[in-house]
């Protein structure tokens, strides 16, 4: 269960303090999938970063399955991210020096390893249609292939929360749908909470719960 209450976020700039989010409230249960839309700079990515324990809120409370991640020590926060959260970014963020398999396995560098991890990774890579690319480096992959690797990486630890920030923003339509399909399938298998930030109304429309960030607040539209 994800509970966010009164979340606010401001940034300090040279020009002064810029509020981005104000009094954001959200409750999501396991298996929920939502889309978040909004104009550029509206704060939707900022919300994702707060819920992903990447950037602290200026105000508000955030609880995930009874744990308040923002009250944890830095080391515990890192462990929390490692185990519970998967991220997919717009520009995939793969490690250029690692192969596809190594990128998928990268969460296990610091997390506890289980015997089945590599087998699971190979299975997921195969599910993503990248078996022939398993030893290739990111520079040898297309945009869609890279994003599929990023999705597999985000899933490998079987997280309970999956956060996607414009995962198809840099892809053509066909590739974007391939990626989304993979995302949906894997989410369903894991029954995790999925939050996806997008500019695309078509993609947003695929979700039963749709939100938009308007005037710094999160407003449910569907």
């Amino acid at each position: 269960m994800l509970i966010a209450k009164g979340i606010a976020k401001s940034y300090e700039t040279e020009a002064g303090i810029v509020p981005v989010l104000s009094d954001v409230n959200l409750e999501l249960a396991r298996g929920d999938a939502i889309s978040i839309m909004g104009p550029s700079g509206s704060g939707k990515s900022s919300l994702l970063h707060i819920l992903g324990v990447l950037d602290p809120p200026t105000e508000g409370e955030y609880t995930f399955d009874g744990v308040e991640p923002w009250t944890l020590e830095e080391r515990e926060q890192a462990r929390f991210r490692n185990k519970e959260i998967g991220f997919v970014f717009q520009d995939h963020c793969l490690l250029p020096q690692c192969t596809v398999l190594e990128n998928v396995m990268s969460p296990y560098i610091v997390g506890e390893r289980d015997e089945a991890a590599e087998e699971r990774a190979r299975t997921l890579i195969s599910r993503a249609g990248l078996t022939e690319r398993i030893q290739h480096f990111p520079s040898q992959l297309s945009g869609g292939e890279k994003q599929r690797v990023a999705i597999v990486r985000a899933m490998i630890r079987q997280p309970r929360l999956l956060l996607c920030d414009e995962p198809t923003g840099n892809l053509d339509q066909q590739t974007a749908w391939q990626v989304l399909t993979l995302l949906a399938e894997m989410r369903q298998e894991l029954n995790c909470i999925l939050m996806i930030v997008t500019h695309s109304p078509d993609i947003a429309g695929e979700f039963s719960r749709q939100y938009t960030v308007r005037d710094r607040k999160l407003v449910r539209t569907v």
Binding site: R75, A78, C93, S106, P107, I109, G111
Partner: peptide, 16 residues
């Protein structure tokens, strides 16, 4: 920097 940010996303703490 982005690589370091990614490590942190993946659950690397500061000492890692």
């Amino acid at each position: 920097l982005r690589e370091i940010g990614l490590y942190r996303c993946l659950g690397f703490d500061q000492s890692a």
